[in-house]
Design a protein around this nucleic acid. Structure first.
Lengths: 220, 220
DNA sequence: TTGTCAGATGTCACGCTCTGCCATAAATTA
DNA sequence: TAATTTATGGCAGAGCGTGACATCTGACAA
C-alpha cells in the first residue's frame, strides 16, 4: 500500500474520530463541517471528497455493519433454517463487536451514542437498514429457491428479524456495560421473535402453510 | 371558521398540491422551495411558516396516516386479540383511502408516487413510522396490561405488523388500479404475517411462551 | 365606522450544506 | 529528473433554513 493510500486512510479515520468526538461534545447539529475539517487541518472542500455529507460521516459505520451481517449470513451452513441463519448472522455481528479491539469496540459505542442522541440520525440509520434488508432478502430467497420479486415471504422473514434486532437495540439502556447490555438485549429480542414465530414457517418448502392466498385463522 | 383560518387552510392545501405536482413533473430534488412558493404566489420565507422543510411538505400525508391508524386501533373492541386489532387498524386505513373522495384518493396516489420515485423520501417516510410505532405500542401494552418500558413484546408485535404493511406496500406495483393493487398487496402481507405467527403468542396473558428469558427451540 | 390588536406576510441578512471549476501541490512512474 | 496522475485548496454559487423587523390584514370591541 503506497504512501498516498495510507495518508488517505489516516485522514479518513481522523475525520471520523474528530467528527464523532465533536458530535458527542456539542451535538450533531451544532457541529459544522468547517469545525470537523479544521480539527483535522484540511479544507472544508476536501471534507466532501471523503464523505458525501456530514450525515455520511456520522453513519459511516453502517457500511461495515452491512458487510459484516451479510457476510455472516453467507457464511452460515446452506441447510440451516432461514430464521436460524439470520439470527446467527446478527448475533455474529454484535459479538464481533465484543471480540474486536478495545479501541474498535469503543468506537462502536461512541457511534451508537451519537445516533441515539439524535432522533434524525437514528431514523436515517434505520432507513439505511432497508438497503441491507434487500441484500439479506436476496440471500434468503436464493437459499429457499424462491423468487424474491414475486414471493413476499423472504422479505417478511427478513423484516421480522431486523425488526427484532432493532427493538433489541432500542431496549438496550445506556450505562456502564453498554456493549454487554446491547448484546443481551438483542439476544432477548431474537429469542422472543423465535418464540413468536410458528415453527417451520420460515422453511417455505415444507408444508403449504405459507401459501400467499392462505386465509389462516387468527393467531390470537 | 373565520376568513383568516380559511385562507391559511387554502394556502396550505395549495402548497401541497403545487409541490406534489412539481415533484411529479420535474422530480423532488430538482424542485426548489422558491418554485413552489412562486407557484402559490407567496414569499419563500412564508413557505417555511407552513412547512418546516421541503421534506415536511412531501411527507405531510404521514400525519394523517398516523392519526387514522392510531384512531382505528383505538376504535377496535378492547377484547380483540392484539394482532387482529392491529391488522384491522391498518386495513381500515387502506380501505379508508378507497372509500374516500375521488379527489382525496388521487391525492394519496400522487403522494405515493412521489415518495416511490425518491428513495430518500421513501426511507424517511419509513423512518417516521417509528413515531407511529411508539403510539401503537403504548396502546397494545395498555390493552395487554404490560409495561412497554420493560416488556419488549408489544414493541415486537407492533414492529411485526408494521413490517408486514411496509412489505405489502413495497410489493404493490405501480399500474392502472394503483389503490386496488395496494390494498390487495397489504392484505396478502397481513395474511402471511398472521400465518407466520404462533397462534396465541400475541396474547401475553395466556400461557408462558412469551417469557423474556425463554430459550425456545428454533421455529425452523 | 373607527381604532386597536393579534396574527400573517414580506423583506433583508445571514449561516450552513454541498457542488462545480480551476489552479496548485503532492505522490507515482518512467 | 521529467512526466503523469491524483489529491488538495480556494473560489464562487445554488439551495435550504432561520432570526429580526417592518408591514399589512383580518378580528373585534367601542
Amino acid at each position: 500500500m503506497g504512501l498516498r493510500e495510507r495518508k488517505k486512510h489516516q485522514t479518513r479515520q481522523a475525520l471520523i474520530d474528530a467528527g464523532t468526538r465533536l458530535f458527542l461534545d456539542q451535538g450533531y447539529e451544532a457541529t459544522t463541517v468547517d469545525q470537523i475539517a479544521a480539527a483535522v487541518e484540511i479544507s472544508p472542500r476536501t471534507f466532501f471528497r471523503y464523505f458525501g455529507s456530514k450525515e455520511d460521516l456520522a453513519l459511516d459505520f453502517t457500511v461495515d455493519y452491512a458487510e459484516r451481517v451479510t457476510g455472516a449470513l453467507a457464511a452460515r451452513p446452506p441447510d440451516e433454517p432461514p430464521f436460524t441463519a439470520l439470527a446467527h448472522a446478527f448475533r455474529a455481528y454484535v459479538h464481533s463487536m465484543e471480540a474486536d479491539t478495545a479501541e474498535s469496540a469503543e468506537r462502536f459505542v461512541r457511534h451508537r451514542r451519537v445516533i441515539e442522541a439524535n432522533p434524525g440520525l437514528l431514523c436515517t440509520s434505520i432507513a439505511r437498514m432497508i438497503e441491507i434488508e434487500k441484500r439479506l432478502t436476496a440471500e434468503i430467497a436464493r437459499r429457499q429457491g424462491t423468487d424474491p420479486g414475486t414471493d413476499p415471504r423472504p422479505r417478511l422473514l427478513v423484516a421480522f428479524v431486523t425488526s427484532a434486532v432493532r427493538v433489541g437495540m432500542e431496549c438496550s439502556v445506556d450505562g456502564e456495560a453498554y456493549l454487554d447490555d446491547l448484546v443481551t438485549s438483542v439476544e432477548n429480542a431474537l429469542c422472543l421473535a423465535e418464540a413468536a414465530l410458528r415453527p417451520g414457517w420460515d422453511q417455505f418448502s415444507l408444508g403449504s402453510s405459507g401459501q400467499v392466498a392462505t386465509n389462516a385463522s387468527s393467531p390470537g
